[in-house]
Design a binder for these strands. Sequence first.
DNA 1: TCGAGGGTTTTTTTT
DNA 2: AAACCCTCGA
Length: 664
Amino acid sequence: MVKKYQLKRIGSTEIQQSQIDESRFQINYKTELNATQFEAVSSTEGAYLVIAGAGTGKTRTLVYRVARLVEMGVDPKSILLLTFTRKAANEMMNRAALLLDNRCSKINGGTFHSFANITLRKFGKAVGIDPGFTILDQGDSEDVVNLIRSRLNLAAVKKRFPTKQTIFKIFSFSVNTGIPVEEILEAEYPHFFEFADVILEIQKVYAAYKQNNNLLDYDDLLVYLNRFLNERSPAAKSFLSGIKYVMVDEYQDTNKIQAEIVRGLSYYNNNVMVVGDDSQSIYSFRGADFKNIMEFPQLFEGVKVIKLEENYRSTQEILNFANYIIEAAVEKYPKFLFTRKSGGELPAIISATNENMQSRFVVNRILELREEGVPLKEIAVLFRSSYSSFDLEIELNKANIPFIKVGGMKFIETAHVKDVLAFLRIAANPKDLVSWLRVLLLHEGIGPKTAQKILDEISVSRISIKSDPEAVVPKKYNDRILNLFILLNKLHTKESSPTEKAEQVLDYYYPLFKGKYDDFNKRKKDLDILLNITENYKTLDLLLADMALDPPRDSVVDIDSETNEDEYVTLSTIHSAKGLEWHSLFIIHAMEGFFPSGQSFDDFEALEEERRLMYVAATRARQNLYISYPMSIFDREKGMTFSKPSRFIAGIKDDLAEEWLLEE
DNA sequence: TCGAGGGTTTTTTTT
DNA sequence: AAACCCTCGA
């Protein structure tokens, strides 16, 4: 065996870049950026991987790069900036526009999914898609799976069969990682392996169902976009000729298909810069693979790696702590964050007797911080899972501290909002059987069987909302659903705004709604919000696409507590806190079983990801970091149990963090 | 065939 | 705390 040893070229790299005359630009890039940031911003041609540690000015770098490209005379429309959320894209475009001028907001920006949506609406035909497709969000996809599942007569099976969520999760994971369903079953769900055949059958029917009804789920958006880009058809070629520069943010959270999409997008122009931090990869459950970022250099020729390591966010004390957390990670690009910010305090580790004591500590400390002049908006509480904050929410309310909660149950996922949207979806696509099922089941006297009979008639077009309801609705159902058909017929055939349609739906829905939910008063506010949202849209299709891709986050619970001022504490899951920062930060429930989550215990990769989550959480803090855990916690089965501090903080040296003892 | 009622499980994280 | 599953009376 011969070992290959490759000689590296040393020095002599930057010469070409510095030949550009900087004075021709309005912005003084050299002085406003540090050396490595400047290198990333001024390297416009070729393939680059920017490894940007937390708080090292990643966004700033992208924003300046957009501005510079525009200043160089590049057509803004030919710049594509893919980000993780639409919010992030908008923020960057706005910042670039402020920095230079309005041309910067004309660039092509958005998430992979929204970019796929727009592109496929235009070019879908090239890959056999009708551009009028409807997007299924996760809940919708699960409902389709359930529809298929329920036809299988599983009662006869006697054994526990996976739920719609599990089945869909397996499908999605398979698509996003390229791992066959059988292998996923074998590795993750051995107890369901005996159902492999049935599950594969469901997958086939699911695919056929989407095809027949012109539906795309989240994964399909990526799959078809990828196909379109990489088939090199004339349509794809001409489309790609309009894209000259590609930038991708949060590259560590992309999956296999997304990596291929990036490859396809840059196939001709070869100008691509991906930015990310392997240590912040926290979306593997969605098929993201941080190895993508490790392997990026193999995707393109001559990839140059640029590392941003100077942190502008946190104190050295917080960075030391964060570095300690991530040092133990097994696979990563070596990097070490440093800062010139001095004079911070050590992160605090607080053990509370029980959960409520933890909550009261947080509340107390927040009040003190406010006294010290820290605005509430500069304070956040982060947790591993959404339900970890319930007790704290109660205490915050008692203390009259306004807060908003990010992550967890979303507006769009609430049953009543889904109900109303189902009506609108039928109006847009009269063959949307899943929405039909949902709507039919709302009606008194119609259960699964009757609904299925009606669905069968609809799917073969024997009854339809396209023509006069009196004529098509079978007499035997008259009393129950004739009015429904009259409504849907009106929605489908009459020209009117989404708002008018939504109002008509609500008129019809209210009585059903009141019968279905005991707490309808609380829920009604969501419906009002939905009505408000519809006013921003000219067509139903646009409204529905946005609801699937960029749904509003807040449900009533949050709106209630969001007082008139915009002074509020942020409660957030760590996943939703990505890319954000606060002056003072609490991480609660830092205990074994919660963080790291109990489900990750026997999986090495999963534990590594939990570690990265802790790293992401800690690096959100600028000045103060408080990490707390209750020493005993209520367990559903066992009652009160003692808990151990998270392995990430247990036994930490006292030059990295100091322990606080709570006293009454 | 519907739907109420009771028991059980779930629950990480999101485009 | 809510969603889901199953059973059983009407």
